[in-house]
Nucleic acid binder design. Structure first.
Lengths: 110, 110
DNA sequence: GTAAACAGGTTTGCGTTGCAAACCGGTTTG
DNA sequence: CAAACCGGTTTGCAACGCAAACCTGTTTAC
């Protein structure tokens, strides 16, 4: 049986983070403002989403100076790359699994 | 540009409701216990998810008696059928849109 | 006949989110 | 010197999801 909670990673399911992780999975790394542009998030919220992804070990955040200007680069970790791939796979499975419904009788007990 | 909030319907994005709506989209109607079985939700939470979907006009809930036993049938409305199809389409678009990233420079202003 | 389980919920309480908005220190531009 | 920009942190609030408790009535088991 499908286990919604254990199967679907809530952290990755959030639209903003889903977009971020998917974008990151198709490039080596991206900088803060680039990610802000493609997601439309405010700096504050982008920052907090990135922090959560970093805490989860899905991304690596590298701060550097370009001349004197601070610049923040974000890249997926191996774990993050695997997690986002898995998440999309599970969404596909949910979709196909829920589409092939055989019966509509019930056999649940309280 | 992608607008996360306007594009992705939060109501439908919730895993439990995504599963419910997807299941319902492949059958005429289903009863309460059947939906509980395939989602693994508790009665209480299934009930509240269904209420939200009903308030949004995505499903129609029909209560009847089978003999003396109460029985609850749930079916998608036209609006619901369209909404779930659209939602999956938008997820597909997010995935493909975020995968074809051209540059990683930034041009956002504060 | 009475206790237990079942159908189908509602209500309550709680911890977690996501978001906007305010604030911040430093830098570059005009 | 002021304004805008870079890259955030912090705060406050409303909404959410969930488990658990509770409910009315029905059916089954002993």
């Amino acid at each position: 049986m499908l286990r919604l909670d254990t199967d679907l990673n809530r952290l990755l399911h959030e639209p903003a983070r889903l977009a971020l992780m998917t974008a990151l999975s198709s490039c080596e790394s991206a900088d803060f403002l680039f990610l802000q542009r493609i997601t439309g998030l405010t700096k504050g919220n982008l920052s907090s989403h990135l922090s959560k992804l970093e805490e989860a070990g899905f991304i690596r955040i590298t701060k550097q100076f370009v001349g004197k200007v601070p610049n923040t680069q974000i890249a997926l970790t191996d774990s993050g790359r695997e997690a986002i791939a898995t998440h999309w796979k599970q969404l596909d499975e949910l979709r196909s699994g829920m589409s092939g419904i055989e019966g509509r009788d019930s056999t649940v007990k309280n």
